[in-house]
Amino acid sequence: MNVFRLLGDLAHLASIFILVHKMHITRSCRGISFKTQALYVLVFLTRYLDLFWAWISWYNFLMKIFFISSSCYILYLVHYRFRPTYDPSLDTFKVEYLVGPCFVLALIFNYHFDFSEILWTFSIYLEAVAIFPQLFMMQRTGEAETITTHYLAALGVYRALYIPNWIYRYYTEGTVDPIAIVAGIVQTGLYLDFFYVYVTKVLQGQKFELPA
């Protein structure tokens, strides 16, 4: 464990609390992509199922339980509790275009061709692109509530902080995880446009609006 990874994980936790808080205070899931949230459930289930056979640490174990359960809870909030506030006509990205290619890539580019390893690799690739439906939705509406942008910023910062973590681990332990690194860089790259608007508008006290 190092400070980059710890801060990254804390940003990830924060993003989930911000999202749940947003839905509770506004009593709605407006502006939130159900598809992105469903993809996160799939990501966490396929990656963290190893908690049944691989022991790393209490930290690792409890975080896995938290991410699986919180993502399912969020899906419940969007799909049942706040369903009337969900507008499917805005959430139209085709997730098949993400799940299919990620699965094929996981079959081709992996460390070992076995069940648990393919699941892990698939989850890494899928996590990298799972934000697409959410970004697509914001592109369509051209705006986002401020609290939603805080959620996305924390979520983006989480993977961005893993990059210095990988550099640090390379120098201190000699470990390199090319699959996670390449996917993590792609994942962070997808947020660059968002980060630009977040820093230049939201952090200056303005509303998050995309140019028409």
Binding site: R5, H12, R47, A54, S57, N60, M63, G174, V176, A180
Partner: peptide, 10 residues
């Protein structure tokens, strides 16, 4: 250690 030996990151 090879990266594939243990996925210790979240």
């Amino acid at each position: 250690a090879k990266p594939s030996e243990a996925h210790d990151e979240l």
